[in-house]
Nucleic acid binder design. Sequence first.
DNA 1: TCTTTTTGTAAAGCATGCTTGACTTAAACA
DNA 2: TGTTTAAGTCAAGCATGCTTTACAAAAAGA
Lengths: 73, 73
Amino acid sequence: MKNRLRVLRAERDWSQADLAQALGVSRQTVNALETGKYDPSLPLAFKIADLFELAIEQIFERPSADNQSASND
Amino acid sequence: MKNRLRVLRAERDWSQADLAQALGVSRQTVNALETGKYDPSLPLAFKIADLFELAIEQIFERPSADNQSASND
DNA sequence: TCTTTTTGTAAAGCATGCTTGACTTAAACA
DNA sequence: TGTTTAAGTCAAGCATGCTTTACAAAAAGA
């Protein structure tokens, strides 16, 4: 799932460490998010959205509709 | 983190199993989300938002700003 | 050039998200 | 009353999110 973190951060001239501190997560987490290693949890996505004063949908790109089934009893 | 899943589901007269199937997750996952056992991943939150044609912010309530620090090198 | 800052990455470990299978209880209904 | 459907929950297990510590390499600045 792609995101605009690197751009939003660059617009503010923040380092990954700066952003990490503002979000209350580690620098490695910010790096992992920017390099697409994994997606944030929903609570962290909310923090990010709040910090940049944007909707979650404006920062994170919808995943490409997966179509995976779960057997469901 | 609270959410409006149970209400949105009730408005459509769906069972937890119906919703689970529409989302491609297990019934237990839907139940856990409704009963507040945990929050969905961001990709699942997007699926939910897409299904109900609402923004994530309209379904999930912002968490109460945690203020936890991470040591950061 | 030398030094500092920033970014990327890795490994180990703990917490959370989600699965399957199974069981219980209550409500709906024949 | 007996049967079925819906909801709640538990346990074990695997996948993902995030931590700390550590190191390497690129970029920025003296």
